[in-house]
Amino acid sequence: MKVLIAIDSFKGSISSLEGSKAIALGIKEVYPAAEIVTLPLADGGEGTVEALVRATGGRLVKKEVTGPLQEKIQAAYGILGDQKTAVIEVAEACGLPLVPLEKRNPFYTTTYGVGELILDAMDHGCREFVIGLGGSATNDAGVGMLQALGYRFLDNMQETVGLGAKELSRIVTIDVSQVTPLLKQCYFRVACDVNNPLYGPDGASHIFGPQKGATPEMVEELDLWVKQLAEITLKELNVDIQSIAGAGAAGGLGAAFSGFLGAHLESGINLILDMVQMEKHLEGADFVITGEGKIDGQTSRGKAPLGAAKLAQNHQIPVIALAGSVTDETNALHSLGMTSIFSIISSPLSLEKAMDPKVTFNQLQMTVNQIFRLIQVLKG
C-alpha cells in the first residue's frame, strides 16, 4: 500500500511536518510495510518556506533585515535543493505578528526588509524566486522593498523619500538608474490568492488597511497615496500597476512585484503543488491524506487541502481529509475531490487543550489508526 500524506499546518497547533509524522505512525500501526510519502503543503502563506525546503532538500538561511517598524530583526528564507531558487515569505520581514497591537499603524510600516532578503538570496547565487504574499503589516505598495533593490523615489526637491506609506505622498518622480543590475536576470513567481486592485473601494487600503491599524480616515489617505503612486508609475515608467489583478495583495506588494519586477502572480496552492511535484508523487498511490486546522467554507476558496484533493481526484485516488474542526459547509467539498472528511477531536475539549501540539499529534495518530483499521477490514 502507498499513501501520500499532503497536509497543511494546523495553524497555532502543529506544523505540517509534525502532523505528517503523527499520521504516518497511525498508518504504520496497521500497515507496517506501507510505503508512505510525505509532502508538507502550504497555500503561499505561513509554512510555504518550510514546505518547499522540506520537499526539495533545501536549507534555511537567516538574515538580519529591517523590520516593519524600521528596526533590525532576524528573518529567515529558504534556498531550495537546486541551489538557485529562493523561497521567501514576506511576513518574515514585514508581517503583522512582528508589530505589537498598540504600534500598528500602516502610515509608518515598511517592506524594506523584503528587498534585503531578495538581495541576500541573490548574493547566495539565487536567480529564481518563489514569493509568498500575505500577512503583511504594511500599506506602502512595496516601495520599501523597491528602495532596498535600488529604486529611488524622489520628492519635488529631488531628494529620496523615507520609509513607510506616509512617504508615498511626497513622491513626484522615480529614478531607476541605481537599480541592482542582477534583477534583470531574476524571475519571480508570486503566490497570490486575491485579485484586489491597488486602490479604490476593493483596493489594498480599504480591504486590508483596517486590520493593520488604519482608521477610516487613514484608509482614505492611504488610498489616495497609492493612487498617486500608480499615476506616477504610469507616467514615468509606462507601467499600469492599478490594472493588475492582485496588485492590492499584501498592502500593494502585488503591484510592486508584478509591475516593477515582472513577477507572475499565481494561485498559491497551484504554485506549491507544482514546486513539490505532487502529481509525480501521486503515481501508484492508494490513498491521499490531506488536512488543516479547520475545514469549512473557506477551504473551497483555494486552500491547500482542496488543491491536493482536486489533483488526486484527477487520478481517481481516494482522499481522506482531517481537521480539528469540520463544519456543515464541507458537504460541497466531496464533489471537489475530498472522499471523506474527519474531525480528529474524539471527546469534548477546550479550544486551548485541543490546540495543544501534543494533543493534536495524538489525536491525528489515533484517528488515522482507526480509519486504516476499517480500510484493512474492507480490503479483506
Rank of each mutant, 00 (worst) to 15 (best):
D356S: 01
M122D: 01
P197E: 03
A323P: 10
A76D: 07
G162I: 00
L265M: 15
N196M: 05
K227S: 00
I272S: 07
G125F: 01
T85M: 09
K227L: 10
G19N: 14
A165C: 00
E102F: 13
V87D: 08
D82S: 03
D8P: 04
I23Q: 05
I295K: 09
M278E: 14
A33G: 07
M366G: 05
G213D: 12
D356V: 04
E18F: 12
I131D: 11
I317E: 06
G44S: 15
I7G: 10
V359I: 05
L224R: 15
G284H: 12
K62S: 01
M122A: 01
I317G: 00
G324A: 05
L237C: 13
G58E: 14
G203V: 05
Q147A: 05
G293D: 09
P201V: 07
T327I: 03
E92G: 00
I295G: 02
N331P: 00
V219H: 00
G324V: 10
G251E: 08
V319L: 14
Q313L: 14
S177F: 02
G203F: 00
P106Y: 11
A214Q: 00
D82R: 09
T109G: 00
P318A: 01
G297I: 11
K353C: 05
T56Q: 01
I171Q: 08
T38F: 08
L17A: 15
L101F: 13
A304Q: 08
M355L: 10
Y187K: 15
